[in-house]
Design a protein around this nucleic acid. Structure first.
Length: 262
DNA sequence: ATGGTAGCTGGGCTA
């Protein structure tokens, strides 16, 4: 079984110990990280290398930042989402990971823009970014290979993926334009792994730090693992691991995992 | 209507 996971850690420097603890416990083959909030030079690479992981890191001072950690060799890293050479935000890293037996899987760690306040230029940027992700995904799907697009999409796909949908209709995470942009990507032929294994609502990946959202279970499902048809063929399990959200000094997001038959 | 929290950074932005 090959486990691939994603976790928005909201500062890797703040979450270094929690991240290492979780890796020791779950031992995924691949972990996609988002919101590193540091430059690549500041990434605590040694901590993860000591645990047996190779690291592909795209950093940025203060904000954003994504990485892929892999127990298997990382090849062909792509460090920016194609389609706008002037975009300097560190929100995308993609790698081909070589598996034993001559197999391979392509993985991307994705941190889509938040888009609030909406409407605003920030929402425009979010929608343009998602359009670029759609265009790039179209290219990737032509390869007809196992592909995993994992990360914080900042999209609530369905009303049952948020505790109170009526209060979120104007929010950039749930606005119609945002959901449409996400659905256009899904409609290329991707499958949401968590939904494929359990389509009930009320399974959240994010709880705001404010107003006791965690204690009251007022959450959102905005972190997703999307699979190409060839990856879906190998899907064995998908879960949201709520435990790290209950730890001291947590990220506001918690990890999502899939098990693939490899 | 406001503020409630966290992180980075040294005031205000981002989420």
């Amino acid at each position: 079984m090959l486990t691939i996971a994603t976790w928005n850690v909201n500062s890797i420097k703040q979450r270094e110990a929690a991240c290492a603890q979780w890796l020791r416990r779950e031992a995924p083959a691949v972990l996609c990280l988002q919101e590193l909030k540091c430059q690549a030079e500041g990434f605590p690479r040694g901590v993860f290398e000591d645990l047996g992981y190779n690291c592909a890191v795209v950093g940025q001072k203060s904000f954003n930042g994504v990485a892929i950690l892999s127990k298997f060799p990382i090849d062909e890293a792509i460090t920016a989402l194609p389609g706008d050479a002037s975009d300097e935000q560190a929100r995308y890293v993609e790698a081909v990971i070589s598996l034993p037996g001559g197999k391979a899987i392509r993985v991307a760690s994705i941190y889509a823009p938040n888009g609030n306040p909406a409407p605003s230029p920030k929402l425009d940027y979010k929608l343009a970014w998602l359009a670029r992700l759609k265009a790039h995904t179209e290219t990737l799907l032509t390869y007809e290979e196992p592909l995993v697009l994992a990360g914080d999409y900042n999209i609530i796909p369905r009303p049952i993926d948020v505790y109170d949908p009526a209060n979120w209709v104007e929010d950039a995470l749930f606005r119609l334009e945002s959901r449409q942009a996400f659905r256009r990507i899904m409609n290329l032929g991707l499958t949401d792994a968590v939904m494929a294994c359990d389509s009930r609502g009320g399974q959240y990946t994010f709880w705001d730090y404010q107003a006791g959202a965690w204690q009251k279970n007022l959450g959102l499902r905005i972190d997703h693992i999307l699979l190409s048809p060839q990856a879906l063929d190998r899907l064995a399990s998908a879960q949201i691991d709520r435990k790290p959200r209950s730890w001291d000094k947590p990220s506001d997001h918690t990890p999502v995992l899939v098990g693939l038959n490899f």
